[in-house]
Amino acid sequence: MSTINGLPAHVLLVHVIVVLIPLTAGLLILCALWPAARARLIWPTAALAAGVTVLTPVTVFAGEWFQKQLGFPPVVDQHARLGHQMLYFVAPLLVSAALLVFAHMRQGRGKPAGRAVVAVIALIAIAAGGAAAWQTYRVGDSGAHAVWNGVLNH
């Protein structure tokens, strides 16, 4: 994917990612800690987790194309390196969502997961959500610095 309506696809997709990854992370943590929220929000949250897991490599691919079009400027290198790591941060969101779906479905069948199991899932969701949100910030910050302090100044 190279352009959308004449604009670099990466520039547009990145805005979707910057919103959806922290939203997904927050919803996962909420679902992990609050059973009433899990009952209402786990399915949309799981769909968001799957969506960002698919959209992340698409965004990275579009970024690689855009970087090539810019002539591989050195100021973009750090952003590209961090962006390539992003899938390692969104995949745990998907795993956490799957674990929460499992706990939710067991609860619905009258076989609730034990408190220790739910606590472990909550810890995984908190760690995955926090890490994904932090990495999203790092990637976005490095991209903004590359644009405002680098590419546009040349």
Results as ranks from 00 to 15, higher is better:
7 L>D: 08
87 L>C: 00
104 H>G: 06
148 W>D: 00
141 D>C: 06
121 I>M: 05
7 L>M: 15
152 L>F: 05
130 G>R: 05
54 V>P: 10
122 A>S: 12
149 N>L: 03
27 L>R: 10
147 V>D: 03
31 C>S: 12
27 L>F: 07
9 A>S: 14
17 I>A: 10
131 A>G: 06
25 A>R: 02
5 N>E: 07
141 D>H: 14
78 Q>V: 07
139 V>P: 03
50 A>F: 14
150 G>E: 00
56 T>C: 03
116 A>R: 15
12 L>P: 04
141 D>S: 13
53 T>A: 12
68 K>P: 00
2 S>M: 07
11 V>A: 14
146 A>C: 08
72 F>V: 06
51 G>V: 05
33 L>V: 08
111 K>Y: 11
72 F>Y: 13
70 L>R: 13
74 P>K: 15
23 L>I: 06
91 A>S: 04
63 G>C: 02
13 L>R: 09
85 Q>C: 01
135 Q>A: 01
44 P>E: 04
101 V>Y: 03
131 A>T: 04
71 G>R: 02
26 G>V: 05
63 G>P: 05
48 L>D: 07
98 A>V: 13
73 P>H: 06
8 P>W: 06
108 G>R: 14
57 P>I: 08
44 P>V: 09
94 L>C: 03
35 P>Y: 02
101 V>D: 01
57 P>V: 09
79 H>Q: 02
103 A>I: 11
43 W>P: 00
123 L>T: 10
57 P>M: 08
23 L>T: 13
69 Q>L: 13
59 T>H: 08
100 L>P: 10
44 P>N: 08
64 E>F: 10
84 H>G: 04
97 A>M: 08
88 Y>C: 02
10 H>L: 03
93 L>Q: 05
116 A>I: 15
118 V>E: 10
92 P>A: 02
144 A>I: 05
136 T>M: 09
112 P>Q: 12
12 L>Y: 05
18 V>L: 04
13 L>E: 02
90 V>R: 04
79 H>S: 00
123 L>G: 15
68 K>H: 09
20 L>C: 09
54 V>L: 13
82 L>H: 11
122 A>M: 10
95 V>N: 02
114 G>C: 04
6 G>R: 09
71 G>L: 12
151 V>D: 06
76 V>S: 07
69 Q>K: 15
151 V>R: 09
104 H>R: 15
143 G>N: 12
17 I>C: 02
16 V>E: 06
21 I>Q: 02
132 A>N: 04
138 R>T: 03
79 H>Y: 01
65 W>F: 06
132 A>V: 02
35 P>I: 05
135 Q>W: 04
145 H>G: 06
101 V>W: 06
24 T>V: 03
73 P>Y: 08
25 A>N: 05
101 V>T: 07
53 T>F: 08
21 I>V: 15
78 Q>A: 15
96 S>H: 07
14 V>G: 07
143 G>W: 03
34 W>E: 05
11 V>R: 08
94 L>A: 13
25 A>S: 14
36 A>I: 01
7 L>W: 12
130 G>L: 01
89 F>Q: 02
30 L>H: 06
77 D>K: 15
150 G>K: 07
97 A>I: 11
74 P>I: 11
122 A>V: 12
83 G>C: 07
89 F>C: 03
72 F>Q: 04
81 R>K: 14
146 A>T: 12
73 P>R: 11
28 L>M: 09
33 L>W: 09
13 L>Y: 11
10 H>P: 04
124 I>Y: 12
